[in-house]
Structure formats: C-alpha cells, structure tokens
Design a protein around this nucleic acid. Structure first.
Lengths: 192, 192
DNA sequence: ACTATAGCGGAGGAGTGCCTCCGTTTCTAG
DNA sequence: CTAGAAACGGAGGCACTCCTCCGCTATAGT
C-alpha cells in the first residue's frame, strides 16, 4: 500500500496525497482539472477529459481516484469544508449579517454549484455527510439571526438552504442579476 | 414527403402528426414517453430508451423526430403553450392573485422543469422563441400586479421568472417544502 | 552514482448511445 | 379484396466513455 499523508481530515473523508513530488504534482493537477470539469459539465464530466486537461494519463487518474465518486468527493468535500470554515470567519458579525455573508459565500462556490444541485436529492453517504457538515456550520448562524428577529419565525434552515442552492444553480444573464435575485429572495426571510 | 396535419401552430413550430392511425398512436406514445424521460433524466435522456418506453422501434422515433431537438421541441413547446393559455385563464383574477396563480402553474409543469433549467442559458432558437412566448403571456400579469402596488417597483419580470425557475428545478424533500419555499421567495416580491 | 520501486500512461476490450438503412408488416383507398 | 404506399423496427457501423493491465520512466534513499 502506498504511504500517504491525509490532507484533509475534518469531514471524515481521508483524501490521500502521494509522497513523491511528481505524483503530488499530478494529484493536484487532477484535482484542479476535475474542479473545472465538474463546474462545466456537472458531475457526469468525462474522466478521460479530466485526465487530458490535467496533462496526465488516464491510468494516473484511476490510481489516485479509483472511482469517479472518489474524485468527485475530493473536489466536493474540499469545497464544503471551506464553506464550514467560512462559518467561523463570520462569527463576530451581527446575526443577520453573519448569516447573509455565509450564504453569499455559499453561492460563491462555482465548481460545485451544479454538483450541489445535482446531488441534492441523492441518497448517498457522500451527500448525507456533506449536508450534515454544512448544517453544523450554518445552522447556528441561522438560529442566531432568527432569534435576533431578523428572520421570520415560520421558516427553517433547511428551507432556506434549498432555496439558495436552487437559485445558485439557476441560470442568470449575469452576476448582477444573480445577486439581485438572491437579495430579492432573501428579503422574503425578514418578518413583515 | 409525408402528408401531415399541423397539430399546434401558435408558436410557429409546426409539429406534424401523421395521417395513419397506427402512426398517430406511435407518435403520441413517443411524445408521452419523451415527456417522462426528459422529466426524469433531463434533456440528455437516451433516445433508445424513449423508443423502448413508447414500445416502438428506434427507427420510428427518428422518422417522427429526425433530431433530438425536434423531439425535445415537441414536448417543450407543448408545455410552454399550455402555460401561455393559462395566462388567459387567470385574467379575471385580481392582479396579484392572477400573477401568483400563473406562477404556480408555471411551477406545476413537471416534465420540462429540469429542461427549462438546463436550456435556460442556451442561445438556441428554440429557447428564444419559447422565452418570448412565455414573456408575452406572463409580462402583462406581472405589470398589472406591479402597477397595483403588490410587487415592489425595483424588480422586473425576468428576475422573477428566473428566480422561480431556479426554485422549480431545485431539489426538495417534498411538495410541501417546495410550496413553502416558493411562498417564502414570493414574499420578497411585495413592497416593504 | 545506483538501484529498487512508486508511479506513469496509453492501448484495448467492453459497454452504451446515436443514427441510417432497408427488408418486412400494416394500413387504407379504390 | 387487393395492391400500392406508408410506416415499422432492429441490425449494424460509428463514436465516445469507462476502466484494467502492464511495460516503461522518474524518483528517492543509500
């Protein structure tokens, strides 16, 4: 078995980064290429195309990521994890601002936008774990905003997250429209 | 050239329904199967699978719909057209109710939900024509609701339609959540 | 420098979907 | 009833993707 270092651990998905310098370069190139490809074509992107974009052989892809799911996990969980960290970074803002900033950050993850939408209903371990992690990160922000009176009491975090991911995945003319629509939808969260 | 009758004309896309009874049965079965398949797998659904579901040979599919686009158009435009008719049906409701009812109807079209999302950014004649038709139908309802004061003045029909189609395409736990979230988002439309 | 070995990469077989072509079947007009 | 025409359907060629396997190459430790 290959000796490895575990690059990310906090989500319980150990992603193995090779020891050798050349192998590590390829690993990183694959991850970057996969991120682009998944962003562009969704989770069904061609693996051979990803290998080609990364400038490595298809065999190398399969050595690092034996299944499509493994590769997808690596990209997806990486981004989810950044999202969880973002929750800490906004902790000292006022309740509503903290929550809104986190949501904006959520929207900002381009690579997994399509993926999040596509995987939203899948009943996979991957999704369940990711969802739990996101929830653990975002729920407290939501609760605080709701308790502070900034969010109407007759809604919940799950509704809001699904609303936002729906909007995130939708097609817009430009980023200005995306922002405008998101703000429009978020306005519905405040009590009347 | 096969003699045909044009089944739907109002959108400028002539859909040809065959003369012979058996052929017409197959045509209808294909359309129904395609509606299901597109709903389930998006616009990339397998054509051979559609033919199988319809209980006809692949050759029959291609005779009626020479390209995937032709088949997709038939389903898509059919539903868009129903949507346009729905606009007439709500005309005598109060402005906001009329608009909201129309949107609910918009959300109700299951078969093209995914498709609408997928095709939203495509720069095809298909989409442009469909969009125009939808706009011609929905815009007056929006305008009336906005003029009546039910909709805030700093938004527009395009924003709202994209918001709703995003939400429509998103994954929800159940229909109750879908409705709840949609209402949440629509609440953002009212002036504060 | 040397060598054991981790790592590389692409050829190739299997699977799947697209679409055409044409021999066979089914309909309908007379 | 019959015959011509319309419609049928699936075999098969092409293209593309998946994934495995194994001879070759680059690296790291001595």
């Amino acid at each position: 078995m290959t000796e490895t270092t575990s690059a990310r651990g906090s989500l319980g998905v150990a992603i193995k980064r090779p020891h050798r310098a050349d192998a590590r370069r390829n690993f990183d190139a694959l991850l970057a290429a996969a991120r682009d490809a998944f962003a562009e074509h969704g989770s069904g992107a061609s693996l051979e195309d990803i290998a080609r974009r990364a400038g490595v052989g298809i065999g190398t892809l399969y050595r690092n990521f034996p299944t499509r799911q493994d590769l997808f996990d690596a990209v997806y969980f990486g981004e989810i994890e950044e999202l969880c960290q973002a929750a800490d970074e906004v902790a000292d803002l006022p309740p509503w601002e903290a929550f809104e900033t986190w949501l904006q950050r959520f929207v900002g993850y381009a690579a997994t936008k399509r993926a999040i939408y596509e995987e939203l209903n899948r009943d996979s371990d991957l999704f369940r774990t990711a969802r739990e992690a996101m929830y653990d990160a975002g729920q407290p922000l939501f609760d605080q905003a709701q308790q502070s009176g900034a969010i109407r009491p007759d809604t919940n975090f799950d509704d809001v997250l699904r609303m936002v991911s729906g909007l995130t995945a939708a097609g817009f003319v430009d980023d200005a429209q995306r922002t405008r629509v998101l703000n429009l939808a978020l306005d519905g969260l405040h009590p009347r």
